[in-house]
């Protein structure tokens, strides 16, 4: 009987005695790569309760039990390190980028709110917010510096805002610079996600758009997992709270998760939204599978989806008849 072990191939007799052995050298790297190559091997597996340590001692691969464990330790560590370093696939990078984008959005919003609150004391009439305000502050600092060519010039002159002292001005300009650079970083990440999606999931990008596609991959955990999901799961990704409420109690089932941000769904009239969500989800799952398994671009997918959506809309031109007054009222509440 032939047996594969991490230190070599053994040929054993009927009672388990070792007849022949082809041992590898005690090079950690060689042994680790060999061990990794055996992961998916279905042939010559060791029998149940096979003792590789006893075999290693018997065939003379190691001289002592202590040597066996110390070698095994080095080899498993090396193999695991190798696996971890190859685990960062392109879809994992997209996931990191999506999560970074969410963090940046959150931070930028609260920081620019702070900035507008703060600067509002000095120039409340500016009417600017977000990035525009940050750029304005970086450019001028105090409203006294607004030149006559700027459309805000007259407002700045007549402002009821307090006078901005030099120390405060320096602080605010620095703060505004940070906010500007966050907006800049956000654009950079968005471009990165768009380019990466084009490379690793072109069909998904075609159907969902780069951001929704990237979010789907992120919530699924990987493109492989997304490709493995049934379309009914894709339909409710991101609505787990509603889904489990539905499974546990008598709550209605969610019609859509994050795919709600898809323009075909959020612009549809409410009575066909569920149906359209189902159609979109099915095409998304097809797209993810094509991307993961073949990588070829299928231009007919968006067209088929459009046709399907149009068909749904023509078949359901009007909202369904209300059955009971009370029931209908309840439904309306849930939709909000």
């Amino acid at each position: 009987m032939k047996i594969n072990t991490w230190f070599g191939v053994l040929e054993t007799g009927r009672t388990g005695e070792i007849l022949e052995s082809r041992l590898l050298s005690k090079d950690i790297r060689v042994l680790a790569l060999h061990s990794l190559s055996l992961r998916d091997s279905r042939s010559d597996l060791p029998p149940e309760r096979f003792d590789p340590k006893a075999a290693a001692l018997e065939c003379g691969f190691v001289a002592s039990s202590a040597e066996y464990y110390s070698l095994l330790h080095e080899v498993t560590l090396e193999a695991a390190k190798h696996q971890v370093s190859s685990a960062l696939t392109p879809d994992q990078r997209i996931i990191q980028a999506v999560e970074a984008l969410d963090d940046i959005n959150e931070t930028t919003n609260s920081l620019s709110e702070r900035l507008s609150e703060w600067y509002g004391g000095y120039f409340p009439e500016s009417g600017l917010g977000g990035e525009d305000l940050a750029l304005f502050i970086v450019k001028y600092g105090s409203r006294e510096n607004v030149g006559s060519e700027d459309p805000l010039h007259s407002k700045a002159r007549a402002s009821m805002g307090a006078k901005l002292e030099p120390a405060d001005e320096a602080l605010l300009i620095g703060f505004a610079e940070s906010v500007c650079s966050l907006y800049e970083r956000r654009r950079q990440i968005e471009v990165y996600i768009e380019n990466s999606m084009e490379l690793i999931a072109p069909n998904l990008k075609l159907i969902a758009g780069p951001m929704l596609g990237a979010r789907l991959i992120s919530l699924a955990g990987s493109l492989e997992k997304l490709a493995g999901f049934p379309s009914s799961t894709i339909q409710v990704i991101g609505a787990s709270k509603a889904l489990f409420k539905h499974l546990r109690s008598r709550a209605p089932s969610p019609k859509h998760g994050i795919i709600y941000s898809h323009p075909l769904i959020n612009t549809a009239p409410w009575w066909v939204r569920g149906k359209i969500a189902r159609a979109v989800a099915s095409k998304l799952s097809l797209a993810a599978r094509i991307d993961f398994y073949s990588g070829e671009r299928d231009h007919s997918l968006p067209e088929k989806l459009e046709t399907k959506v149009l068909q749904i809309k023509t078949l359901n031109p009007r909202p369904p008849q209300k059955k009971q007054e009370s029931g209908a009222k309840l439904k309306k509440k849930r939709r909000k």
């Binding site: 594969n4 072990t5 991490w6 061990s35 055996l38 992961r39 998916d40 279905r42 597996l45 060791p46 309760r49 096979f50 003792d51 590789p52 340590k53 006893a54 095994l72 498993t76």
Partner: peptide, 10 residues
């Protein structure tokens, strides 16, 4: 378990 049977002793 087959995928790590070449490493683990009883």
């Amino acid at each position: 378990p087959d995928s790590y049977s070449h490493l683990v002793e009883p």
